[in-house]
Amino acid sequence: MLTINKEIRELKFFMEFDEKYQHSLFELGEIKEFAVKEIIIKETQELHDLFVILEGHATLGITVPDKGRINVGTIYPGQIISWSALFKPYISTAVVTADVPTRAMAFNAKKIQAWMEREPEFGYRLMRFISETLSQRLHDTRFQLVNIVTI
């Protein structure tokens, strides 16, 4: 069992769930630590875990032929990465690297999926959080897209 301090409990992701689910999440989760510049998720790799950043921050990038890596976003504590682990074809869409020493909690995607099926209320809460995240990232991406096409 991990030591879960108040700071972790109050991260945006965990605030989404009531105590019962929080407890189960902490039981399921596995803490992973990443050093500076260490890759958390490789691009186009098969994913097995959903991550919630607990400490530090990480940069999300995409590798472009001839240009190398283009960074497009920073992910902070309380935010998720690797949501693709829950959806077909379970392949990552970006590369994520720790900017500073970073801790994240990893959840086995298969177990989470099974849990969601079993307990729709949990499923709803998690899906709501993912939807909000995706809606936000879509919004930001549109902003970025419009920025680029209007140059």
């Binding site: 190398g68 283009i70 960074n71 920073t74 935010q79 936000q136 930001d140 902003f143 920025n147």
Partner: peptide, 23 residues
Amino acid sequence: RSVDVADDTWDGHVGVVTTLLDQ
């Protein structure tokens, strides 16, 4: 500060300016 896009020489925040509001 944030920048919309960056290469690896930039170690600050990356993302459109509105993403700073989350932080």
